[in-house]
Design a binder for these strands. Structure first.
Lengths: 118, 118
DNA sequence: TCCATGTTTCAATTATTATTGAAACATGGA
DNA sequence: TCCATGTTTCAATAATAATTGAAACATGGA
């Protein structure tokens, strides 16, 4: 992950509305949420929501997929993990300091299909 | 960690100069770096650097401590860890998904004194 | 086809943020 | 005390971002 992309990803999350949107999606897991449902959960107006979802999407933090009249949004856990990894990269000059475990989801595809050849 | 603080922390990191500064400090570890040294490493002018360091400091991402004519800055690993934790909180509704280990430094105090009664 | 629903786009307004250079402040040593 | 060094502050400028409401677009069902 390049610095430029990291800044974009962080900037996408560094905003009240978008952080709320993203957390909703993280908690929803791979099933995701329809745009309207996100609007209900967060209280963000549809037009503003759309703006922020585009922002998150452009940053690679969320993915979307049409489903009938709905558009289902999901958190992109791959980008999320890469972001967390970047921030701790070369921590303390690479010396072992204090390894910590934390949960980090994988995208649904990784478990059901053969994707992510990263 | 409250949402407001998370947004502040993310905003602090979501900027080229500040991300570069913070990574320098993460890699320097608990020993930290003098402001002038950060300026050398990143190519950021002293006045701009000072502005960004204040921003990072205000967000709790870095700490500072005068040492003679120098001011030594260090990454605040406690805030950093709290930030990473917040982002993955309640991931997938709390269901176990894919635990991942990553390094995460502790502040020097935690290893040498009795602090962090969190 | 027509209508209701769900989502996105657009334009305008308002607010916030980064950068620069000069000047100020503080410290340690001669 | 005076000077050089290291850091911060200040004011001005330029650029970017968020919110709103109205309108447009697309889909599925009657």
């Amino acid at each position: 992950m390049e610095t430029k992309d990291v800044v974009t990803a962080l900037a996408a999350l560094a905003q009240d509305s978008r952080l709320a949107i993203f957390r909703s999606l993280v908690q929803a897991g791979p099933a995701g949420l329809a745009a309207g449902r996100i609007s209900e959960l967060t209280g963000i107006s549809p037009s503003s929501l759309s703006f922020h979802l585009k922002e998150l999407s452009h940053a690679g933090m969320v993915d979307s997929q049409p489903s009938g009249r709905f558009v289902i949004y999901t958190a992109n856990f791959t980008t999320m993990n890469a972001l967390l990894g970047f921030l701790t990269e070369n921590c303390c000059g690479g010396n072992p300091c204090s390894p910590v475990c934390m949960p980090a989801c994988e995208p649904e595809q990784s478990r059901t299909t053969e994707k992510e050849p990263t």
